[in-house]
């Protein structure tokens, strides 16, 4: 169980956070214009690298704010954290 450095609250226990998967997958500007393949790609397909991975996390049991992080999936360790980009960091569900 790691300490995760929330950009707003500082280091907190991993238990307080929830995972949001790959970052920077923007919602399509015009879903209706997409083919079924393109839409499926957005809905279901996410990168799954072995190594550094840009992700979204939420400090759910703390400030409840979302942020982005780069984490190495080989070691599970966080390499950096930062606030969300101004727009389109990619909600997924």
């Amino acid at each position: 169980m790691q300490l995760i450095a929330c950009p707003w609250c500082g280091p907190r226990e991993e238990l307080e956070f929830s995972y949001g998967g790959q970052a920077h997958v923007a919602y399509p500007s015009d879903p209706a214009a997409l083919t079924d393949e393109q839409w499926a790609r957005f809905v279901f397909f996410r990168d799954n690298p072995k190594g550094p991975f840009a992700e979204r996390w939420a400090h759910s049991a703390g400030c409840r704010r979302w942020f982005t992080a780069v984490r190495d999936t080989r070691t599970h360790r966080f390499l950096s954290v930062g606030p969300l980009a101004a727009s389109g960091s990619g909600a997924t569900s």
Binding site: S18, G20, A26, Y27, R56, A58, S60, R64, R65, W66, L84, A86, S87, G88, S89, G90, A91, T92, S93
Partner: peptide, 14 residues
Amino acid sequence: LDRMEEWLQTEWPD
């Protein structure tokens, strides 16, 4: 609520 927050914060922060 989590989902609403997620979309609001990460996709539509404007």
